[in-house]
């Protein structure tokens, strides 16, 4: 058994517990999936906060360079120096590329729990189908566990965003 399979097995006991709290299986399903979504959102939030903290000075530096180059290019344009504008815009573009991909890579810190939760749901509940009121094209009249998890996760993210007011500059 590899490390990941072992890890999934270890946390299985922890993740399945809320599904068993209520006696009713339907209420249990909703409770368990809501708790799973809350964990995924919280874990993502903690990780991204950690990554931002670790990389703070570097982000500030790269974003600062992007801002500076941009302002320089706009000044060149306002001064009517089209050639300088194009040249500085290229530098701004390069600085942006660096900053953009750094933040793209860091963004995965907030989303990694989602596929992990989906993988766990796939292992645990892939055989269970939930009937829909209407027949959807290509999907049919049954949906999988993920259909319920994703909206709950989005809801958990929104609620988590409201719990703690953001301070300072997001950049």
């Amino acid at each position: 058994m590899d490390f990941v399979s072992g890890f999934v097995e270890a946390i299985d006991y922890f993740l399945i517990a809320p599904y068993r709290w209520p006696g009713n299986p339907v209420i249990g399903w909703w409770t368990g999936t809501a708790v799973l979504a809350a964990w995924a959102a919280l874990l993502g939030k903690i990780t991204i906060a950690l990554v931002f903290r670790v990389n703070r000075s570097y982000i500030k530096e790269t974003v600062g360079e992007v801002d500076q180059r941009h302002t320089q290019s706009m000044n060149a344009l306002k001064a009517g120096d089209r050639a300088a504008y194009r040249a500085i815009n290229r530098l701004a573009n390069e600085a942006f590329g660096k900053s953009f991909f750094l933040q793209v890579a860091m963004a995965s810190a907030s989303l990694w729990p989602v596929p992990c939760a989906l993988a766990w749901l796939q292992i645990r509940f892939s055989s269970i189908q939930f009937p829909l009121a209407v027949d959807l094209p290509l999907v049919g009249h049954n949906v999988g566990a993920s259909f319920i998890f994703i909206p709950l996760y989005i809801l958990a993210r929104i609620m988590l965003g409201k719990v703690k007011p953001r301070k300072g500059n997001r950049e």
């Binding site: 990554v51 750094l102 995965s108 990694w112 989906l118």
Partner: peptide, 21 residues
Amino acid sequence: VQWGFIGAELVGIFIGSMIGP
């Protein structure tokens, strides 16, 4: 797609993004 694999990759990517700077 294999969800667990994408999850493991996302974890790796953000760890890499902390090492890079």
